[in-house]
């Protein structure tokens, strides 16, 4: 491969070996790249360790299920975050019910019907841009068009979260649909199926695992959002079983308000709620990974 080379003294020189300072520069850069990774590990490890250490103190069955959130001044051990856990599950669940089907349908439009048309390209581009819209803006938006007319409710919070999730689901489903080989579609067309039928019975199932895992990641992101809920669900101290009327609370909101308090009890509850929230998002992320890993189709 390498022609034999020799230096001026006639000794063989391996041309693959760079000179000293070039090699050191290369090594330094490699070390810096590793350092970058380590730097990022430090806060991550720090936060997870603190979360587990402080949160574990707070977590108990009572903490997770007791439906009365005590006043800030009350120390740990009284009441619990049950109201917030239920709120988070309900509000995020309903938001997912809204955003996921709409997002998948939107991606279907982009990939199956839109083609290269200007509308499709505009929608595709703007949904990328929309993923960068701050979540607080979504909250203000729903406040203006819904809360001002119909009051605070868990459903309003779901609307705001759904606005947040929609572009994310569209983008990730779009990527998954693009991966479905055309031969599948064409085979179905050859059998005389209509486009709708092809999409629903062939393309979607083929992309399903990717769509599901993308959707789960969007749900995890929505579950952790606080800002959109500030303007839409207000807060409560007791579980509000009715998602559609009356203020509600959720884990991120409770963490936010308890974090601002100087009270020891409030802070402890914040850590417990934070650990619960991270556990929920973590579980969603792991399930998403499992779905991808188990069902990844090898692209031809």
């Amino acid at each position: 491969m390498m022609a034999a080379a020799s230096n001026s003294l006639g000794q063989p020189v391996d041309l693959r070996e760079p000179s000293g300072w070039r090699r050191s520069k290369n090594q330094i850069m490699t070390i810096l790249m590793w350092l970058a990774f380590v730097i990022v590990l430090i806060p991550l490890a720090f936060v997870l360790v603190t979360l587990v250490a402080k949160g574990a103190d707070a977590i108990s069955l009572q903490f997770l299920t007791n439906s009365t959130i005590p006043p800030n001044v009350v120390p740990l051990g009284v009441g619990g975050m049950g109201a917030a856990v239920v709120g988070t599950l309900e509000i995020t669940g309903f938001a997912s019910l809204l955003a996921i089907p709409l997002g998948v349908l939107g991606a279907v439009y982009l990939n199956e019907y839109g083609g290269n048309g200007i509308l499709a390209r505009l929608i595709s581009f703007m949904s990328s841009v929309m993923t960068g819209v701050p979540s607080i803006v979504m909250g203000l938006f729903i406040y203006i068009i819904w809360v001002l007319h119909f009051g605070y409710s868990g459903m309003a919070g779901s609307f705001a979260l759904a606005c947040l999730m929609l572009p994310i689901v569209i983008r990730s489903s779009y990527e998954m649909l693009r991966l479905v080989p055309d031969s599948l579609r064409q085979g179905s067309y050859a059998l005389g199926a209509t486009k709708a039928r092809v999409t629903v019975t062939v393309v979607l199932p083929a992309a399903l695992s990717g769509i599901v895992s993308g959707a789960l990641l969007a749900v995890a992101r929505a579950a952790g959002e606080t800002a959109p809920l500030i303007f839409t669900i207000l807060t409560v101290e007791q579980t509000n079983p009715n998602l559609f009327s009356g203020p509600d609370t959720s884990l991120p909101l409770q963490i936010f308000s308890n974090a601002q308090s100087a009270y020891v009890g409030a802070n402890a509850r914040a850590w417990g709620a934070a650990l619960t929230l991270v556990a929920i998002t973590f579980i969603l992320m792991i399930v998403a990974r499992i779905v991808t890993a188990l069902f990844t189709r090898n692209t031809r």
């Binding site: 990774f37 990022v40 590990l41 991550l44 720090f46 936060v47 997870l48 603190t50 979360l51 995890a220 579950a223 952790g224 959002e225 606080t226 991120p252 963490i255 936010f256 974090a259 914040a270 850590w271 934070a274 929230l277 991270v278 998002t281 973590f282 992320m285």
Partner: peptide, 16 residues
Amino acid sequence: VIDLLAVVPSVVWGLW
């Protein structure tokens, strides 16, 4: 690991 970083909600970063 990098995805873990992304999954931690903003409010938890704020609390910490």
